[in-house]
């Protein structure tokens, strides 16, 4: 998505990215970024919390309006109110899931080989 932001910007369309993967977005580099410290999947905030979601959209528009240089990053003051351990949980590799991950990888590669035979242009999803 960061690459799309860069392309749009180069084409004269100012952009703002709203997301929750700070390291990835800063690594690629985007013109304006609103960081919301939430689990991936809800970058605009808690599900069904319309007030918080609205405030994030307002913050994004404000950033779009006021940023004066590239790589401007703003952080939302809101935080995830669910399980406090969510940061440690994401895609963790532990002794408990290591064997299952290895098996899942092998199954995925087999599926990809089969998909390639039927549709060579099929996209392989990545984060």
């Amino acid at each position: 998505m960061s690459l799309v932001a860069r392309y749009l910007e180069n084409s004269g369309i100012p952009t703002v990215v709203v997301g929750s993967a700070l390291d990835i977005i800063e690594h690629v580099g985007v013109p304006r970024y609103l960081h919301t410290d939430f689990p991936l999947g809800n970058p605009l905030g808690t599900p069904y919390d319309r007030e918080m979601q609205r405030q994030h959209v307002d913050m994004a528009l404000d950033l779009l309006d006021k940023a004066s240089q590239a790589n401007t990053v703003s952080r939302s003051p809101f935080s995830w109110q669910g399980d406090a351990g969510w940061r440690d949980d994401y895609s963790r590799v532990t002794d408990a899931n290591r064997a299952a991950l290895a098996a899942a990888g092998e199954a995925r590669r087999a599926k990809q080989r089969a998909m390639k035979k039927t549709n060579p242009k099929q996209q392989i999803p990545m984060p």
Partner: peptide
């Protein structure tokens, strides 16, 4: 890739 063990994407507004 989203955090399906702690949240969901049923609310499009999120």
């Amino acid at each position: 890739s989203w955090h399906d063990t702690v949240t969901h994407t049923r609310d499009v507004g999120s």
